[in-house]
């Protein structure tokens, strides 16, 4: 995803002189080098100084630019949180904060490098849009929207590398603020997910279909804020069962939001949520192993559903 992000920024930056990239000593390789070489005045490496990255981006936006700030998610959102809130959101500036390698994707790096509550934190800020595209193509479309159409700040949660293509043959268009059916099932089960967890959602859907013959719907909730309330309500009412899968703590993410929507609209639904635990887990193995330690795996979801 990070390479495709760099490609996207480079392509958009060629067309639009307002696009600039700020990084904090972490750079997606490949095309970001091309961006830096071709548009050196629009590329700033702030060093290991994330507060300055966000503050300077805000100053650039106040002078008409549309900056992207890029580093690992913990450092792009948590470290400079007050700059994100005051400089970007309070002034409602069109700056996109990229949180790369979110969730517990850096499984061996420990809790300092895990972003388990970013959706809750970013969603709590007024004016903030929160996006989590599920594959490189959805990320490209989301990045294009941030560069050309966003009216205020965006926090965009990305994975790292190697995410498979999940959407290139999907009929539903990508539209910020609308949920997107990647598969339309037979009305039994609907899986709501986003971002890096979507591959696991597909795995669950495939295996449930194999085992039961029922075809689950799979939905990319790539825009967590503003949430497509009507779309969520429709998914809740048009399926017998709904599952939320997310690589995020149980509180303040998509699970909480879907429950809110159901409660606020007095919808009776069979809703199950699979998330990270509300815990720092000291596990040093691969990503799947750490997710499993949190209770998030395709097997566990399938076991609960079949």
């Amino acid at each position: 995803m990070r390479n495709k992000f760099a490609d996207a920024i480079y392509e958009i930056g060629k067309q639009d002189p307002r696009i600039c990239a700020l990084v904090a000593d972490i750079s997606p390789a490949g095309s970001m080098v091309k961006f830096r070489e071709e548009f050196p005045e629009r590329f700033i490496n702030c060093g290991v100084a994330e507060q300055s990255m966000i503050g300077i981006a805000a100053g650039l936006a106040l002078k008409g630019m549309r900056p992207f700030c890029y580093t690992i998610a913990t450092f792009s959102l948590y470290r400079p949180f007050e700059m994100v809130r005051d400089d970007l959101a309070y002034q409602n500036l069109p700056v996109t904060v990229i949180g790369m390698g979110a969730g517990v994707i850096y499984s061996t790096l420990g809790g300092t490098h895990h972003t388990m509550e970013d959706i809750a934190v970013a969603s709590a800020i007024p004016n903030m849009t929160v996006l989590a595209p599920c594959d490189p193509e959805e990320m490209r479309l989301a990045t294009t929207w941030c560069a050309t159409e966003s009216k205020g700040p965006v926090y965009m949660r990305l994975g790292k590398a190697g995410e498979p293509d999940l959407t290139s043959s999907v009929v539903d268009p990508f539209e910020v603020g609308k949920i997107r059916y990647l598969r339309r099932g037979d009305g039994d089960l609907c899986i709501l997910s986003y971002g890096i967890t979507m591959k696991m959602a597909f795995d669950v859907a495939d295996r449930i279909q194999e085992q039961t013959g029922r075809a689950p719907s799979v939905v990319s909730v790539h825009t967590i804020k503003p949430l497509d309330t009507a779309g969520i309500l429709s998914a809740l009412s048009s399926h017998d069962r709904v599952v939320v899968m997310e690589e995020h703590v149980p509180h303040g993410g998509l699970s909480s939001r879907v429950k809110e929507v159901a409660w606020d609209n007095r919808v009776r639904a069979d809703l199950s949520c699979f998330t990270l635990k509300d815990e720092f887990i000291h596990y040093y193995g691969d990503h799947a192993g750490l997710l499993d330690a949190h209770g998030l795996s395709a097997e566990r979801v399938i076991r609960a559903l079949v």
């Binding site: 503050g55 300077i56 805000a58 100053g59 650039l60 106040l62 002078k63 630019m65 700059m83 400089d87």
Partner: peptide, 12 residues
């Protein structure tokens, strides 16, 4: 906060 904002403006 002002220093970062001012630097971004000045750079632009």
């Amino acid at each position: 906060h002002g220093m970062g904002l001012a630097i971004g403006m000045a750079y632009a």
